[in-house]
Amino acid sequence: MRIGELAARTGVSVRALRYYEEQALLVPERSGSGQRHYAAAAVDRVGLIQTLYAAGLSSRTILDLLPCVDARVNTPESRALLRAERDRIDERIARLAEARDRLDGVIAYSEGPESGCAFLESERALSRSA
């Protein structure tokens, strides 16, 4: 398929697909006239790239991970890389959950003094322990 069709099938812009190519995340075949042609598997590849970007991975890290996915590479190094990224994502999730909980406290406080007292006490305790 050509780049426009891949963009339509994945919901990713042509510009983003070209960026993926520049980063060596996506490698199309080229016709004699230089047009990009993608295999059907490129749809899944783009989905994976999007998922990894959404998880906060850099293009460099994604490039390092893709061989583990493509060839089902199973080495101690590849497993360590995958675990390290999972641990980094887990830490990010924990920070986001903490931010959400604090936001819930702010919302409770804004809805009335009786519900906000617990929030104020927990914020004071947090500031004392920091």
Rank of each mutant, 00 (worst) to 15 (best):
R2S: 00
R2A: 00
I3Y: 06
G4E: 04
E5T: 11
A7Q: 05
A7K: 05
A8M: 06
A8W: 00
R9K: 13
R9Q: 09
V12I: 13
V14G: 07
V14L: 04
R18I: 01
E22R: 15
L25S: 05
L26K: 15
L26A: 14
L26P: 12
V27H: 09
R30I: 01
G32T: 08
G32I: 01
G34K: 13
Q35N: 12
R36S: 06
H37M: 14
H37G: 05
A39V: 01
A39M: 10
A39Y: 02
A40H: 14
A40F: 04
D44S: 14
R45A: 08
V46F: 07
V46H: 09
V46L: 03
V46Y: 09
G47R: 15
L48K: 09
L48G: 06
Q50W: 01
Q50L: 13
T51I: 01
T51R: 15
L52E: 09
A55G: 08
S58Q: 10
S59Y: 00
R60N: 07
I62S: 08
I62W: 06
L63A: 14
L63N: 11
L63H: 15
L65K: 06
P67C: 03
V69E: 08
V73H: 04
N74S: 12
N74L: 02
P76C: 07
P76I: 04
E77I: 10
S78K: 02
L81T: 10
R83P: 01
A84N: 02
E85T: 09
E85N: 14
E85F: 06
R86E: 08
D87V: 02
R88D: 07
D90V: 07
D90R: 12
D90W: 02
D90I: 04
E91P: 01
R92V: 03
R92W: 01
R95N: 09
L96F: 12
A97S: 08
E98S: 15
E98D: 14
E98Q: 14
E98Y: 05
A99H: 08
A99W: 03
A99Q: 13
D101W: 05
L103D: 05
L103R: 14
D104C: 04
D104R: 09
D104H: 09
D104S: 12
G105L: 06
A108Q: 11
S110M: 03
E111K: 11
G112E: 03
P113Y: 00
G116V: 02
C117N: 02
C117F: 01
C117L: 12
L120E: 13
L120V: 15
E121Y: 02
S122K: 13
E123P: 00
R124G: 01
R124L: 10
L126P: 00
S127Q: 14
S127I: 14
R128H: 07
A130V: 08
A130M: 12
